[in-house]
Structures are given as C-alpha cells and as structure tokens.
C-alpha cells in the first residue's frame, strides 16, 4: 500500500536538476537529462551561432555545447571548477538530439510537488516566457524551471545550423523588439 502511494507520489512529484547561472537558480526536468559532465576540452567549430561554443567528445560521439550565458545574453565568464556541462536530449526533426549545455554550477536533484510550482509571469521577464515552463518555490528560493524543448527549439537549432549569423542576429533582434513591444 505504501509503495503504491509512493508511486503515486512519484507520479505527482517531478524531479528537477538545479543549476546556477550568475547566482540565479535554474532547473531542467531530470527526465530530459542524460548526464552531467565536467568541462573537458571544447573544440571550437567555425561558423556556428555565437551561443554555440564548440563541440565535445562524449564517449566517441560529437556533441555540440551551448553556453546558456550567451543564450541568455548574459556576461560571459571564464570556466570555474564548478562549471559543468549538462547533456540533454532534445527532439529535433523527429529524432532525439544530444546537446551539451554549459552552466556555472550544477546543484542537485530536487523533488518539487505540484503545489510548489507556479506559472511563469506573462511579462516583465527578461527571457521569453516560452522557455520557462514554471517557477518552483523551495522555501524562499525561486527556481526557474526551463523548458528544454522550447529553449532549444527547432527554429533556433536550425538557425544554429544555418551559417548566416547575421540573420540569426536579426531574428534575435526582432524577437527582442517583439519582446520589448510586449
């Protein structure tokens, strides 16, 4: 009986991996994460979007690494000992694609119940609300739970695939203008 209840709870309770960028706590859904890595050698690839800082070798396969700081138009900082790469899986053109996300530090795996989650605010946010699935509350601490699929949308990834950076920049500008308008 107890086990059943616990299983139910598990269904209700989702697990998230928290990490920090510029002292702000963000989180990904654990189920979308493959693993966490230390920052190893990142090979820079020319003619890629600016937020894509290069590729790494993950047990033989090439994985692109995206700097969330760049993605969030934050100030770029050097690597620290705590700097980690979170390997996530994103649906891209019907197939799962593995992407490395560079964050300042990985914290822990937390469990958040439904009542601990709140919908993101509609405006006044620096980020596109699409990429925020919810905002978790753990005590006084707010955890911004990012939607990985939206964060690395096909469009963006495709843009990332495109080699026209200026177009990407224009798009981003337009987006930002739109955001400002909103």
């Amino acid at each position: 009986m107890e086990k059943q209840e616990a299983a139910d709870k598990i269904q209700e309770v989702k697990q998230y991996l928290t990490f920090t960028i510029s002292d702000e706590v963000f989180a990904f859904d654990v189920l979308k994460i493959k693993e966490v890595l230390e920052v190893s050698k990142i090979t820079k690839v020319p003619k890629t979007p600016k937020f894509m800082i290069g590729v790494i070798n993950l047990r033989g396969s090439v994985v692109s690494v995206i700097d969330l700081r760049l993605k969030f138009d934050m100030e770029v900082k050097g690597f620290t000992v705590d700097s980690s790469i979170i390997i996530v899986e994103v649906q891209y053109e019907g197939e799962l694609m593995t992407i490395g996300v560079l964050v300042d530090a990985v914290k822990e795996v937390v469990k958040l119940e439904a009542h601990e989650l709140e919908a993101p605010p509609k405006f006044g946010m620096n980020l596109n609300s699409d990429i925020i699935s919810a905002i978790g509350k753990k005590g006084d601490l707010f955890i911004i739970i990012l939607d990985i699929q939206n964060l690395f949308s096909e469009k963006e990834l495709s843009f990332s695939k495109q080699e026209d950076i200026s177009m990407l920049l224009d798009t981003i500008k337009q987006e930002k203008q739109a955001e400002n308008k909103e």
């Binding site: 697990q15 991996l17 822990e108 795996v109």
Partner: peptide
C-alpha cells in the same frame, strides 16, 4: 551522485 540521481530518476 548527481549522475546517479539522474540515472535513478530516469
């Protein structure tokens, strides 16, 4: 441990 946790969660 994190990876383990992630694995466990998955």
């Amino acid at each position: 441990s994190l990876n383990a946790s992630i694995e466990a969660a998955r």
